[in-house]
């Protein structure tokens, strides 16, 4: 079934075109959602927040983007239980906006890290894990400087107890607590992950495991 997918575009978003190509390749419709504009939450079936450096990652990653008119509509969209996917900077924005628990801090190494890494699916009961099985291992590229997932012990407990851990790193590249690479909200309709599935769609890209996500 062809979905109408809204792709958020903040000043400094870099992976919007990559996501658009991915969505179109799945025979869905893709439309850009501009950061200054609200949108009608009934007009879209899915919203994706791509990676990049929204607002230069200034102040804190995703902080300035989280407080834009567009995000008000994304919040409304999420509250309706509709599927929202945040990739890398998109994940950071969702955390800053309170749509996902926790925060993304600087990598322990204090350096940007670009590499292909192995991950494990911990939860497949969400709109972005079709055909995946729990405990299945995949390879995806990561490319981030602030990917250390942090939540206080109370929230970490909630996340674990409620099966909100989506993906974990087999070899933790950034110090994320509980090796969390991706996390879900309580309702399990908002999903955020640091790795880039849109960069793992063909053998020549180094992995085709991005296919599990859309």
């Amino acid at each position: 079934m062809a979905l109408k997918v809204g792709i958020t575009r903040f000043l400094g978003t870099n992976c919007d075109e990559d996501i658009r190509k991915w969505v179109l390749s799945k025979n869905h419709q893709a439309e850009y959602l501009w950061y200054e504009d609200r949108f009608d939450v009934n007009s879209y079936d899915m919203v994706i927040l791509p990676g990049g450096f929204s607002h230069g990652d200034y102040l804190r990653c995703g902080a300035l983007a989280a407080h834009t008119p567009l995000m008000k509509s994304v919040k409304e969209f999420a509250e309706k239980g509709k599927p929202v996917l945040g990739i890398c900077n998109g994940f950071q924005i969702l955390c800053e906006a309170g749509l996902l628990p926790g925060a993304l801090l600087r990598n322990d190494s204090l350096r940007f890290k670009d590499e292909l890494t192995t991950l494990t699916f911990k939860n497949t009961n969400n709109p972005f894990s079709k055909n995946a099985k729990t405990d299945q291992k995949i390879v995806l590229p990561i490319a981030h400087g602030e990917g250390h997932f942090y939540a206080d012990s109370e929230n970490l407990k909630k996340i674990t107890d409620n099966q909100q851990v989506w993906l974990t790193y087999d070899q933790n590249p950034n110090g994320s607590l509980l090796n969390i690479a991706g996390v879900l909200n309580a309702q399990k309709n908002v999903c955020g992950l640091m790795p880039h599935p849109e960069r793992a769609l063909h053998t020549w890209m180094g992995s085709t495991d991005g296919e599990f996500f859309l």
């Binding site: 870099n14 992976c15 075109e17 990559d18 190509k21 991915w22 990676g51 990049g52 350096r111 940007f112 890290k113 670009d114 590499e115 590229p141 490319a143 880039h196 849109e198 960069r199 769609l201 020549w204 890209m205």
Partner: peptide, 14 residues
């Protein structure tokens, strides 16, 4: 050095 560079943004890198 290389791992500090984003080598794959744009989804074109083979």
């Amino acid at each position: 050095i290389h791992n500090q560079y984003d080598q794959r943004v744009g989804a074109r890198t083979a």
